[in-house]
């Protein structure tokens, strides 16, 4: 069974449900503390930086955590082709560490700036819709998501606006298809305004990968949309219909939710690799 490390940096707070999400798709998950010995990291096949407030987002979200030795070690493992998923605060760490988009290795080429929307500043918790685009990250994190299919997931962040000051970086992100997930309307069209576009990110980016596609910085929380019961009962659209129809049926509500596609994709991509590893 492929092994995933859920990286526990001080202040992170989604490690348990993230581990449950990985286990739900058949991966072995272990929560690994930031200060465990360097040798621990090479024993894992995948890394997830969960959500939370690493170092309380002091200075900037992700700024202090990006300097940790553990993040360096994970970067080395990623360079060997292992997948890294940064969720929300984890995404902020990956961006601050220069792992996404990583055109020039180690260089910081993006920021996750404070949300900007008309009449709505600051922290924002709500369900939004995203859709998976074509790009190198698809085989890692979005296998099985139909093109244009609206996927409801919750967000909870104050600094989630992907932005670069370098026009060349922006151009390459677009041409190389590194925006794997974009904010969308409930019908699956690209989001143009608040609240469907919750933070004003460039290219309506909700998730950006590196050029190889094995590192994803994803602002929404797919681990909070893992079971149907987590979908709000009064949500519009197909998932809302499913949720309402399942009231009273525990088995259905305990079935898959919309965010599971990200973890299932990761598990599917890891399965043959782990099998090869096991044979060797």
């Amino acid at each position: 069974m492929a092994r995933a490390a859920v990286v526990q940096i001080p202040g992170v707070n989604c490690e348990y449900e993230t581990a449950r999400a990985l286990e739900a798709v058949g991966l072995e998950a272990r929560i690994v503390r930031w200060n465990e010995p360097d040798s621990v990291w090479s024993g894992f096949d995948a890394f997830v930086l969960p959500g939370g407030f690493a170092f309380q987002d002091r200075i900037r979200a992700g700024a202090v955590a990006a300097k940790l030795n553990a993040v360096d070690r994970i970067a080395s493992e990623a360079a060997r082709g292992k997948p890294v998923l940064g969720i929300c605060n984890g995404a902020q760490v990956l961006v601050e560490a220069g792992l996404v988009p990583g055109f020039r290795p180690g260089h910081v080429e993006l920021t996750l700036a404070p949300n900007r929307a008309p009449r709505r500043e600051g922290y924002l918790c709500r369900w939004v819709w995203v859709r998976a685009e074509e790009g190198p990250g698809r085989e890692w994190f979005a296998r099985g998501a139909r093109p244009g299919e609206p996927i409801p997931v919750p967000i909870a962040h104050g600094e989630g606006r992907f932005q670069t000051a370098d026009p060349e970086v922006r151009r390459r992100i677009q041409t190389d298809g590194l925006v794997l997930f974009r904010y969308a309307t409930p019908a699956g069209a690209p989001a143009e305004e608040y609240p469907f576009d919750p933070n004003g990110a460039m290219l309506q980016a909700a998730g950006v990968t590196n050029a190889a596609g094995n590192i994803l910085a994803f602002m929404p929380h797919p681990e909070r949309a893992l079971w149907l019961r987590q979908v709000p009962i009064d949500m519009a659209g197909d998932w809302g219909e499913r949720r309402r129809a399942a009231v009273g049926t525990w088995g259905s509500l305990e079935g898959p939710g919309p965010g599971r596609v990200v973890f299932e994709s990761l598990a599917a991509r890891l399965r043959p690799r782990a099998a090869i590893g096991a044979r060797a």
Binding site: I59, V108, Q163, A165
Partner: peptide, 16 residues
Amino acid sequence: VLRDSRTGLLVNPHGE
């Protein structure tokens, strides 16, 4: 100004 994970801290030039 932040350049890479070893250099810079207080300012991310893509946002500030």
